[in-house]
């Protein structure tokens, strides 16, 4: 089981949790398992074709998955997958 870090905007979709443990041997499988368990997450981060939206950054440990093997990046038990959408808040 890998740890998925959930950003504040998606926490409601996973019952308020900040991290969720899911299985899978690649980043894509981990996110698939997450979306199967919490369909509301899929509605936010996946396109109609089931692909990750371009505005969703995914990190495996501290590295941008786009620079690894994207959804095929291997993920083990000790790894953390972080979903990271940009945040805008600052002034108001």
């Amino acid at each position: 089981m890998s740890t998925v870090k959930i950003p504040p905007v998606l926490r409601q979709a996973v019952g308020g949790e900040r991290t969720v443990e899911v299985g899978g041997s690649t980043m894509g499988e981990v996110l698939e398992a997450l979306c199967a368990q919490y369909p509301a997450v899929g509605g936010q981060i996946l396109t109609a074709d089931g692909e990750l939206h371009k505005y969703v950054n995914v990190y495996v440990n501290d590295e941008d998955a786009r620079l690894l093997q994207w959804i095929d990046t291997p993920v083990g038990d000790a790894d953390t997958v972080m979903i990271l959408p940009a945040m805008a808040g600052g002034a108001r």
Binding site: V9, L10, Q44, H53, K54, Y55, V56, P85, A86, M87, A88
Partner: peptide, 8 residues
């Protein structure tokens, strides 16, 4: 790219 308003 920026996320859509409901994600941001």
């Amino acid at each position: 790219e920026p996320p859509p308003p409901d994600l941001a």
